[in-house]
Design a protein around this nucleic acid. Structure first.
Length: 181
DNA sequence: ATATCGATGCTCT
DNA sequence: GAGCATCGATATT
């Protein structure tokens, strides 16, 4: 995979990331849920221009944008250039299961990485990785086959509700929230 | 099965 | 001072 993968419309990148395998220090699994956030998107951190927090969203593509949410959890995005980014929302855990279970406190596999905050805890992602290239150590990102894709509105936001920019692997038991029919 | 609520700290208004 | 791109526990149908 090359950085050109990320220099495309952010919703396409978000859709294509479902099925890819993401690890940090060899710990992680297949991406099964993502969300796209664009520069001209009222729900995006970048909507009101560059600030201290969102600066890496305006830098090069293929970088990690990591921020703290609710004072407790971390969220991991991959930048796509020009103020856009893809939020990684859920993984199907497969590599380094014991490490992830230790970090998360022995959770059943289906709930190990089923949410943006959970997967950051499981993979050991925090602010020290903000701005780091995702195509180099400690990250590893490999293309994978995409099974059925399911699309729906994004979760947990209060603006631009209803924009169908959430992408999930169809029927996966590892999602943060099941897509409603 | 859904609903509500508290934790906790930073960013931006 | 308000508002979070959340999570886990507890309460309620």
């Amino acid at each position: 995979m090359t950085s050109a993968f990320f220099e495309r419309p952010v919703d396409l990148v978000a859709a294509d990331l479902v099925g890819c395998v993401l690890t940090v220090e060899g710990v992680g699994g297949r991406i099964v849920e993502t969300e796209a956030y664009a520069a001209d998107d009222p729900a995006s951190h970048s909507f009101r221009g560059m600030t201290g927090r969102n600066a890496v969203m305006f830098g090069p593509a293929a970088r990690a944008y990591v921020y703290r949410i609710y004072g407790l959890h971390w969220c991991l995005n991959v930048t796509c250039g020009g103020g856009s980014a893809v939020l990684i929302r859920a993984l199907q855990p497969s590599l380094g299961l014991e490490t992830m279970m230790a970090r998360r406190g022995l959770v059943r596999p289906q709930a190990l990485c089923s949410g943006p905050g959970k997967l950051c805890q499981a993979l050991g992602v925090d602010a020290s990785l903000n701005g780091a290239p995702v195509l180099a150590r400690p990250f590893q990102l490999a293309a994978g086959p995409r099974a059925g894709l399911e699309v729906g509105p994004r979760i947990g936001i209060s603006r631009a509700i209803g924009v169908p920019w959430r992408f999930c692997e169809k029927g996966s038991p590892y999602l943060s929230v099941r897509i409603r029919a």
